[in-house]
Design a protein around this nucleic acid. Structure first.
Length: 478
RNA sequence: UCCUCCUUAGCUCAGUUGGUUAGAGCACAUGACUGUUAAUCAUGGGGUCCCUGGUUCAAGCCCAGGAGGGGGAGCCA
């Protein structure tokens, strides 16, 4: 008999039909009631065991975590809690789970503890929900871009350039660490002897390569792993994370903002439409968690309401200059409540400033544009004022920067000037500069942090809990 | 990297002014139970008090150094 997934089974009208299910035991109550989960849904199937007729040796081993196969008939449940249940006629133990050492219990565990057993945390309700939502969001991203005629480009993970301008890089080498070949004349490493014959790194961004594709295919995006060797110890940073980077020919900054806003809203709606049960559970989890917190640290609104709030109204759009004015004139600033007082134009905005704009002043996502050139990357297009660049950052409540993007500098001379000013050697990026020599055009793009999007949608507070096997400084277990 | 808090049973945590044999709930084991919903009831076992060193008649508690973790900051997505 073919196995029926629990998600599908729960849509059936119970009429005594004979079915086969397989899954893992969550609890076994009253010597009769087996809560079985197979990952297809957050809901468990109640399998009812006739313990007088069942082999006692098997009953003994129906402990939390065990894997079983159950054949039986689907009947209406006489008790509250579920509408249908499977009356077992045959029970097979596929894999036992010694209850004395299995670490998961039918109770609430701390996320910190579950992080230490990341190989087993998939088996909890919370992580089951998070990873189903993660999948739905990944699918939504491809679906969104495909519908709009974008092409999915696979940019390299190992890169030969170390001037992508997005942070510290991990080196990739096969050179023996104890016997690195040095050039005696200049004391440098002889990368001619290395695997690629030159120094290579793990990518920090696929943007530059995506630009090459956009200037031929028109509308493209990348969606892949990205690596940053920054010593960042926060709940929002990973050394290995996934990023979505669209790049669009002929788009200017306003088009870029529209695209990013549409993408975010599409993904959030997609999750609400396809993961209702999981989001309902995650929302309830947050409500319970809030009960243990002081009033001022609690969420202003329940998860689903927060998501609807974001999808149903336009994001605020202001320039950096306007933002500085708002901050400068805010009561918080006047009363000296900012740790970094806002004194004038040109400062880099601190987390507390971004939070004030998003959570206090606008109370919705904010797109900040036209930053001072000196605090932004070399490839961003210079405005006519000669002081600001066409950058845009999208700030989300509780997350901070979720998107960072810009209209790119398409004019060769301007680009070369900026690279010179920021000490980026032209020979490293000769191939990038050629796009500006041969048929250059205005174009724009952005990077969306996939884990940050998942954090927002699931309400999880730490990036390490929305990726299966988080890589952070001093941690690459599993 | 900086600031700050934490580390006691498998988990979550209590442990008074430094003082006898370190506690609770859950989990686990054994038994009971044919409608349970993180089932319930009874009984029981379970401790490198993070590590190293020091102060003291005496350290889970005080001091120093280290390790691991949380929260915040910087950098960013």
């Amino acid at each position: 008999m073919k196995r029926t997934k629990i998600a599908e089974l729960l849509t059936f009208e119970p009429q005594g039909q004979e079915l086969l299910v397989k899954g893992w035991v969550r609890t076994f109550r009253n010597n009769q009631f087996l809560a079985l989960n197979d990952g297809s849904t957050i809901k468990n199937l109640q399998v009812v065991v006739d313990f007088q007729r069942m082999d006692e040796a098997i009953l003994k081993k129906l402990s939390t975590g065990a894997c079983v196969s159950a054949k039986g008939t689907l009947v209406a449940s006489p008790a509250k809690g579920q509408s249908a249940e499977l009356k077992a006629t045959e029970l097979q133990l596929l894999g036992e789970s010694d209850a004395e050492v299995f670490p998961l219990q039918p109770k609430k565990h701390s996320l910190e503890f579950l992080r230490e057993i990341a190989h087993l945390r998939f088996r909890t309700n919370t992580f089951g929900a998070v990873f189903r939502v993660r999948h739905a969001l990944a699918y939504a991203i491809h679906s969104f871009f495909h519908q709009r005629g974008f092409y999915y480009i696979h940019t390299p993970i190992i890169t030969g350039s170390d001037a992508e301008g997005a942070g510290e890089m991990f080196q990739v080498t096969t050179l023996p660490l104890l016997q690195i070949p040095f050039n005696k004349e200049n004391g440098q490493v002889n990368f001619q002897d290395d695997f690629f014959g030159k120094a290579t790194n793990l990518t920090v961004s696929g943007q530059l390569e995506a630009e090459l594709a956009a200037l031929a295919l028109g509308e493209v995006y990348t969606f892949g792993p990205t690596f940053r060797a920054e010593n960042s110890n926060t709940s929002r940073h990973l050394a290995e994370f996934w990023m979505i980077e669209p790049e669009v020919a002929f788009n200017e900054l306003d088009d870029n903002m529209d695209l990013a806003e549409d993408l975010l809203k599409y993904c959030i709606r997609f999750a609400m439409d396809h993961c209702a049960d999981d989001l309902e559970f995650l929302q309830q989890r947050l409500v319970e968690e809030d009960k243990t917190k002081p009033q001022e640290e609690r969420n202003a609104m329940p998860l689903l309401e927060k998501l609807r709030f974001v999808t149903d109204q336009p994001f605020a759009r202001i320039t950096y200059t306007e933002a500085v004015e708002i901050l400068k004139n805010s009561n918080t600033n006047k009363k000296g409540k900012f740790k970094y007082p806002v004194e004038g134009w040109g400062i880099d905005l601190q987390s507390e400033h971004e939070r004030y704009l998003v959570e206090k002043h606008f109370q919705k996502p904010v797109i900040l544009t036209d930053y001072p050139a000196q605090i932004k990357a070399f490839y961003m297009r210079m405005n006519d004022d000669g002081k600001t660049v066409r950058a845009m950052d999208i700030l989300f409540p509780g997350i901070g920067e979720i998107v960072g993007g810009s209209q790119r500098e398409e004019r060769l001379q301007h680009l070369q000037n900026r690279m010179k000013a920021m000490h980026i050697p032209e020979e490293e990026l000769w191939w990038y500069l050629e796009t500006r020599k041969f048929g250059t055009c205005p174009h724009s793009g952005f990077g969306l942090g996939f884990e940050r999007l998942i954090m927002f949608v699931t309400g999880m507070g730490n990036v390490r809990d929305v990726i299966a096997f988080p890589r952070t400084p001093k941690n690459a277990e599993f």
